[in-house]
Simulated scan of single mutants.
Amino acid sequence: MAVLKLLRAPSKYLQGKGALLHFYEETKELGSSFLFICSNSGYKNCSEKLTESFKGSNCEFYFEVFKGISSTGEIERMRKIVQDRKIQVVVGVGGGSAIDTAKATAYYEKLPVVIIPTVVATDAPCTGLSVIYKDDSTFDSYLFYPKNPEAVIVDSEIIAHAPVKFLIAGMGDALGTYFEARACVRTDSPSLENGGIALSAMALCELCYKTLLKNGYQAKLACENHLVTPALEAIIEANTYLSGVGADNGGLATAHSVYNGFTALSECEEVMHGSVVAFGTITQLLLEDAPKEEIKEVMDFCHSVGLPVTLKELSVTDVSRVKIAAEKACIPGETIHNMAGDVTPDQLYDALLAADLLGQDYFK
C-alpha cells in the first residue's frame, strides 16, 4: 500500500522586529500561567520584552534558567516546577537545548508549547521532535511528538544581535533541505514524520534553497552589523520555518548522515551542525552525479557565506580518519539509505574525499 502523504507544521508562526512584544496577545488563548524555560542568553535578551507583553493582563508567568542540556534530569526538574505552580503553557527560550527541554516538558505534562528561538543555527524550533541526553551529557534518544509546537515566535532584532556564526550554521543546515527531500522523493522514502512527501512540502524545500541563494550573503552582512533588513528576515524564515517544516515533511538523506558520522571524530566536537551538513550536501551531490553547474552553484553559495567546502575547514586534517565517519554514517537506520541504489561506507568515503579535492581546487 502506498504511504499516505502527510503535512505537519506549527499552528502559528510569527516573525519580525519586536515580535516578542506581541507574545501575550498571540498566545493568550493557550492558558493563563506560563513557564519560560530559558537559556542564560535567552533570559538576558528576551525577559524584558516578554514581561512588557504581559502588561495589563492577569496572567502569571515565571522565568526558569535551565542548566544547559536537554537531559532527563533537567526535564524532570522542569516538570516538577510545572506541577508545583500549576503551569498551563510551557515556553522554550534560547537555542536547541532549551527548546528541546521545553518540548519534552510540555509533552510529558500534556501542555501546549511555544518556542522562542534566540539563534537560528538549526531548524529545531518548528519540528515535532527533540534530542534527549542522559545526565552525563551522552546521547539518550530522539523523542518524537504527536504534533508540532502551538506557536513559534522569532524576534528578528534578537537574531540580528546574536553572533553571525549561528546564522551561517543555520544556512548550512537549511542548505541540505531541498537536496535531501529530492533524494527521498526519487526513492519514495518517507519523511521524518513517516509520511509520504506532499507537493507542498517539496515547494517549501525548493523555496528554502532559492531563498538561501538570493539572500544569504546580504543577510550575513546585515547580521554582522546588527541590522534587520529584508534579506535577514528572509534567511531567518528560511533557516527556521522553510527548513524546519521542509525537513520534517520532506525527509533526510546523505547530508545529515554525514553529520552523524562526523560526530565520531573528536576533532569535530566544536564544529557546528550546519557546517558539516553543508559539506555533506556537496558530498551527496557527488554521489548523485549531479550536474556540475548545480555543484558549482552550491559551492559558490557556501564560499560566499563562509560555509566549509574542504575537510580542513571542518578541522579534519588526517583523511584516514574520515573512514571512521563514513562507517558511522552508514549504520543501519541512517537516512543515507534513502539514496537511490543505497550507499556503502567505501562509496561515501570516496565521495567525501572527492568533495574535499573539489573544495581545495575551488581555492586555487
Rank of each mutant, 00 (worst) to 15 (best):
C208N: 15
I197W: 01
P149R: 08
T240I: 13
E150C: 05
Y145E: 04
E157D: 14
F166E: 06
E193K: 12
E157V: 04
N194C: 08
L204R: 07
A219K: 04
Y133A: 07
C223F: 01
A219D: 08
G195L: 12
I236S: 12
N215K: 09
F179R: 06
G176A: 15
N215T: 01
L227D: 10
L192H: 06
L207G: 10
V154C: 01
N225M: 06
G176S: 15
L204A: 07
E237R: 00
A222H: 01
G176M: 04
G195P: 12
G176D: 06
A181M: 06
C208R: 02
S156E: 05
D140N: 12
D135S: 01
K210Q: 15
L199A: 14
A174D: 05
L143E: 11
V185Q: 13
A151I: 00
A231D: 15
P149C: 12
N239T: 02
K220F: 00
T187R: 10
D173S: 02
A201C: 07
Y217I: 07
E157M: 08
T177M: 00
A234D: 13
A174F: 01
T187S: 14
N148F: 07
L204Q: 10
F139P: 06
T211Q: 10
T138Q: 12
A160H: 08
V228M: 08
I236W: 13
S137H: 13
L199V: 11
E157G: 14
K220Q: 09
P163L: 06
K220H: 03
I159W: 05
A160E: 12
A231P: 13
A183H: 03
H161G: 10
A201N: 09
A198G: 05
K220Y: 04
L227G: 02
I159M: 07
A203V: 03
N225Q: 15
I159T: 07
N225V: 01
Y142E: 12
G172E: 07
A174H: 04
L199F: 07
Q218N: 15
V152C: 01
A198K: 09
Y209R: 02
A231E: 15
A234Y: 00
D135F: 05
D173V: 05
F166P: 03
L207A: 15
V185A: 05
L213Q: 04
Y145P: 08
C223S: 12
L212K: 04
C208L: 01
T211I: 01
K134Y: 09
K214S: 08
A238G: 02
C208P: 09
A201Y: 04
I235M: 10
L175T: 09
E233Q: 14
V152M: 00
L175K: 02
A203W: 03
T240Q: 05
I236R: 11
L207K: 15
P146G: 13
L227C: 13
N215Y: 15
P230I: 14
T240Y: 00
A234C: 06
M171F: 01
L204Y: 12
G196W: 03
A238P: 00
L175I: 14
F139I: 09
A203D: 07
I236T: 14
A162Y: 02
E193M: 12
P149M: 12
E206G: 00
A219M: 10
A219C: 11
R186L: 14
L212R: 06
A198Q: 10
V228W: 03
R186M: 13
E150R: 07
V154G: 00
K147E: 15
A219T: 06
